[in-house]
Amino acid sequence: MQFKLIINGKTLKGEITIEAVDAAEAEKFFKQYANDNGIDGEWTYDDATKTFTVTE
């Protein structure tokens, strides 16, 4: 399945899409990606669109 991350950071904005087995695997990848890029904010997930959003 495809999952999307929308980044609304103070210094980094954009979107990335990955293939993952389930939402838990996608969330783990996205949170590591955000951590690696210094993004720390509020997370939301929309199951209907398979979209995670992080907002700083």
Rank of each mutant, 00 (worst) to 15 (best):
K28M: 03
I16N: 02
T49V: 12
Y45H: 09
I39V: 15
W43G: 00
D40Y: 09
A26H: 00
G9N: 09
G41K: 01
F52I: 01
T11I: 10
K10L: 14
Q2T: 07
E15I: 02
Y33E: 12
K50L: 06
N37W: 06
A23C: 03
T17C: 02
N37A: 11
T55H: 12
A20G: 11
A20L: 04
I39R: 01
E56F: 05
A23T: 12
K28C: 03
G38F: 15
F29R: 14
K28G: 08
D36H: 11
A20D: 13
E56M: 07
T44G: 09
G9Y: 04
T44D: 11
T51F: 12
K10D: 04
E56Q: 06
T55M: 04
E19S: 13
A48K: 12
D22Q: 14
I39P: 07
D46L: 14
G14T: 08
T49M: 09
D46E: 12
T49I: 05
N37S: 07
T17S: 15
I7L: 15
A24V: 11
N35C: 02
L12I: 14
T49N: 07
Y33Q: 06
K31I: 13
K50A: 13
A26W: 00
A20M: 07
Y33S: 08
K13H: 10
E56R: 01
T44V: 06
W43P: 04
E42M: 12
I7E: 01
I39K: 01
K4P: 00
D40L: 13
I39Y: 13
E42F: 05
K28D: 04
I18A: 08
M1S: 13
A24P: 15
D36W: 13
E25H: 11
D47G: 06
D46V: 11
T11E: 05
K31F: 10
I39H: 09
E15A: 05
G9S: 06
E56C: 03
W43C: 01
E42D: 11
Q32T: 07
T51Q: 13
A20F: 11
T49Q: 06
A20R: 04
D22P: 04
Y33W: 03
N8D: 12
G41E: 01
D36R: 10
Q2Y: 08
L12G: 05
T55E: 15
V54C: 02
A26E: 00
T44E: 15
F3A: 01
A34Y: 01
D36E: 02
F30H: 02
K13W: 15
T11F: 13
T53L: 07
G41C: 01
A48M: 13
E42S: 10
E19W: 09
W43E: 00
N8H: 07
G9I: 11
I7A: 07
Y33L: 04
E25C: 02
A23D: 14
I39D: 01
I7G: 07
I18L: 08
A26K: 00
Q2M: 10
L12V: 08
L5Y: 01
A20Y: 11
L5H: 00
G38P: 04
I6W: 14
N37L: 10
Q2I: 09
Q32M: 04
L5W: 04
Q2N: 02
G14A: 09
G38L: 15
L12C: 03
E56N: 04
E15M: 02
T55C: 02
T51I: 15
T49C: 02
F3Y: 03
G38C: 02
D47M: 08
F29C: 04
Q2E: 12
I18D: 02
E56A: 01
I6T: 04
T51C: 03
W43D: 00
V54L: 09
I6V: 12
Y45M: 06
I7T: 13
K4Y: 14
K50Y: 15
E42G: 05
E19I: 09
L5F: 04
A48V: 11
K50D: 05
T53M: 07
T44L: 05
Y33I: 02
F52T: 10
F30Y: 04
I16T: 08
E42H: 07
K4L: 12
L12D: 10
M1F: 11
A23K: 13
A20Q: 07
K4W: 09
F30V: 04
G9V: 11
A34T: 15
N37E: 09
K28F: 07
T44H: 04
L5E: 00
Q32E: 12
N8M: 09
A24E: 02
A24Y: 14
Y33P: 00
Y45L: 06
T55D: 09
A26N: 00
T55Q: 06
E25L: 13
V21Y: 13
I7F: 09
F3G: 00
I16V: 15
K31P: 00
T11C: 02
N35R: 08
E27F: 12
I39F: 13
D36S: 06
D40H: 12
A24W: 11
A48L: 07
V54P: 00
